[in-house]
Design a protein around this nucleic acid. Sequence first.
RNA 1: GGGCCCGUGGCUCAGGCGGUAGAGCGCACGGCUGAUAACCGUGAGGUCCUGGGUUCGAAUCCCAGCGGGCCCA
Length: 1049
Amino acid sequence: MVIEEAQRSYNPLIIEKRAQEFWESRKTYQMSQKNREDGPRFSFLDGPPYCSGRIHLGTAWNKIIKDTYLRYKTMAGFNVRRQAGWDTHGLPIEHKVEGLLGLKSKKEIETKIGIENFIKKCQEFAIENQAVMTQQFKLLGVWMDWDQPYVTFDPKYMESCWWTLKRAHEKDLLVQDLRVITWCPRCETALAMAEIDYENKEDPSIYVKFPLSVSEPELSGNTSVLVWTTTPWTLPANMAICVHPDYDYAYVRDGEETYLLAEALVDSIFGEKDYEILKVVKGSQLEGLEYQHPLTQEIPVQNDFKHKILPGEHVTLTEGTGCVHTAPGHGPDDFEIGKAYGIPIFCPVDEAGLFKQEAGKYQGQFVKEADPYIIADLEIHGRLFKEGIIQHRYGFCWRCKTPIIYLATEQWFLKITQIKDQLLSELDKVEWVPSWAGESRFRNWIENARDWTISRQRYWGIPIPIWTCSDCGEMTVVGSLEELAHLSHEKLEGDVLHRPYVDQVNIPCQCGGQMQRTPDVLDVWIDSGVAGWAALYYPQEQELFEQWYPYDFITEGHDQTRGWFYSQLGCGVIALDSVPYRKVLMHGFTLDEEGKKMSKSLGNVVEPDEVVAKYGADVLRFYLLWANKPWEDLKFNWEEIKNINKMFNILWNVYVFASTYMGLDDFQPKRYNPEDVKLRDEDRWITSRVQSVSQEVTEAIEALHLHRAARSLQDFILEDLSRWYVRLIRGRTWIEKDDPDKLGAYQTLYLTLKQVVTLMAPIAPHLCEDIYQHLIRCLETDLPESVHLLDWEVDETLVDHDLEADMDVVRHIIEACARARDTARYKLRWPVQEIVIVSEDQKVLEAAQNLESVLLEQANTKKITPSQEFQDLKIIATPNMKTLGPRLRKDVPKVAAKLAEIDGKKLIDKMEADGVFMIDLDGSTVELGPGDVTMETELPDNVTNSEFPGGNVFVDTQITPEILSEAMSRELVRRIQDMRKDLDLEVEAHIQVSVDCSAEFYNLVKPFLDFISHEVRATELLFQAPDGDYTKDWKIEDHELIVGIKQLE
RNA sequence: GGGCCCGUGGCUCAGGCGGUAGAGCGCACGGCUGAUAACCGUGAGGUCCUGGGUUCGAAUCCCAGCGGGCCCA
């Protein structure tokens, strides 16, 4: 087979479509898995994306990191498990479905369409999105097991989750308790900490007077405790006021009234008012003082309670009054205080956030909407001290964005606080990249972890497998469907695990009553937390679990510290006493160009599909891995995307270059014997380089420093391969026939490109596949049919560090030559007679000698002379006026004249030998000491120099007749080439050239006629009036000529 | 309020066991011309976020502050 002609320029859309169709038709992914069936296992667990819509850039980045790493692992010989996962349950989907169906509350769900239909819709919605997102991931070239993913609504998956809860129960870690928890009044459910977003919010800020029941006689008039709150709606539930026992509290007289508040905050509240501090006491002295609720008229129930001042360690002096309004039904701290002092947990708010009957006048009002009414009532009773507005951080339901409220409710908890030590010790067994992700960040989270509220009063989720008897209170946790069938004596078939079906299954209780299921569903973080074994259907099935658990690797964004990293650790310790993962890469977030979070409301969202449509998936993949360290946030930047695209274009150009010439010459890598091929230093150099880069890339990917791998490849492709190697071998590709020298270049370039596409295949799978197919495999048909089936190999024996170092030096020298020519305005096309390389570093001189052929050609010189010094440097001694002026006076000019004639080098030698130098001056002798002359150096005419790291180059730019002759010939060649290009001739086309020029010009180029003919593929080179298809006038220096060319058949 | 990370030319980022600041892009100028809707060279451009400290010497180490991101309260 022969090389196929390459597309002119890099067209990712065609290439990627072609590659994906190829993989699809050849089932390449499946082959790559099968290929490694017997390799060592490497287990990976996909953090399941949530199926609520299209993927965004962050999701794309996440999967691209996974895909690159796993493709590499597969090529490196591992049997990699890479099942895709999908997170499908929970409020986000319920919320979207509610929107689609126009439902506004739980009541509407149950009465308007019913739970059964609602669940069905949720499932359909999840399945649709799963399909869309799968397609998007595939478009990015992500290889996973898309056909057999784990899905959290799969009944078998759900059973594993039930089993986990049963384990928690067996360990006594599953408890029901009345606690104050964060609550979404719109979704009417408990929320876990992980389900709350914090944003800025405007709220009322009011100071309320709570009158003390008994006024002390010495404080004339009424005394009120001053309390600050931003949630007036919690005032109806006020049961106590807390003060810090150690702080000082002041009685402050302001006009007719007296107020009690922390002394430290008096100034911030009374400020410029004309107030008087009557007395200061410790907080502890205030304990037990009784006060009156300010809204007893509106809320008669409040008359039945006694209200006291209580001590509270949680009270701070950062804001407010140091006297904290305490409503045990609406705050976690308040709740603890209430329990400690036996105060009733009064909570006059229902699950929808509406005031209940106990709230008296406010009954039926939504809490937040009652704020102004409550404020107004306080005002009427003269209980409002001050009113304002405050901007502060407040929690919102992560999905419906409703401000959360705190409610005292009965919920189910996992007692995380009880297993915290075990969580921490398991954490120590995990390897984190970067290390601080685990050692600092995650550890900090776990140290602060509280018990985990796992019950949700919703529909689309894994039902809590807890059955309780309403008669005797007996409770049982069911661990599987089979167990439920057994206990209920019912035949259970199909998906009976979801609501509402499972709600109808009752279990006969020993007491003779019926056990009914707790109607709650589970927090979705439990769903994904159990993925480690649920994806393997453990414990229902054992074999996969034994093979693949625990997982060698997971990677997710840093938001998953509180999410999946945590839920897996918690569930893992509960179910299996171990953390399910061994190594974690915590990656960053994608931000917009200004470093702001991408969000729909800001309109700065970049869709991955948009980038793919413009530049292709490979460019996006390479960019995302290249742009920064994986664990840092990534500022998306279109300019950089273009930059990467440019690099791909250059790689493509190298490939086009290779395929063009190799195709013309019908190059066959397997046809030649070693003796047919002549390798030059530059061939050995690029071979060494590509293996060095292979080492770097391997180390970088292994360390998950994917940016280093990408940057190393980029640097190699641009600097070494394109800018240097291709430049060095260009001359050799122009040689006719099967010249060993040309074959050496072909073979080296071929093997280098082969290694590059292998190395780059995990990052840019499509492009590498395309080049592999059309340059490599079409010539080596016995190779595996896809680049992704190759073995990852590095041949360290080909690495020659000395050669690489030498080439570095030589590149610097050649650049210096170019600079020197540039300053002398001496064209690179014109050869020079000699270049002297001067360095005190022996290694530099050796490098110049070792790679002399490269230097001669690239510096376009006839001769290279390495030297420790530049012999032709003129040294000129000039008189030092400071010393000689006073001494010699008017003889100074004569001395100066003499010095100018003398060879400076001899003067130095003499002075070094004798310590003095004598000058004859009209009979008299002048004695010059070392301080009397200063030395200057001067370059000879026609020499320019330039520095490079390690030395200097001296370029002889003198134009001899021979040089001029060659220069003119090259100038003529360039012009004829230009005309060939104007005609868009095929590279190998032969032409006839006729040149009309002066006799002088003809004589100049005469010695180079063969050279010219060869360079421009002229079968005939005639010096006569042009008679061609195409003629053009040219001026070369002072020579005017007319050139005509004609294509020959 | 707490934890973690980040803050280097106009832009994106290297460097970071302390020793005269680097690259790419962009800009300006010059060059090259069968890889050519490319490529090469040169130049301008930096209080290395701010302020303290340690040190002969700090972009680098320490402390405080400011700004950004994530997580928590």
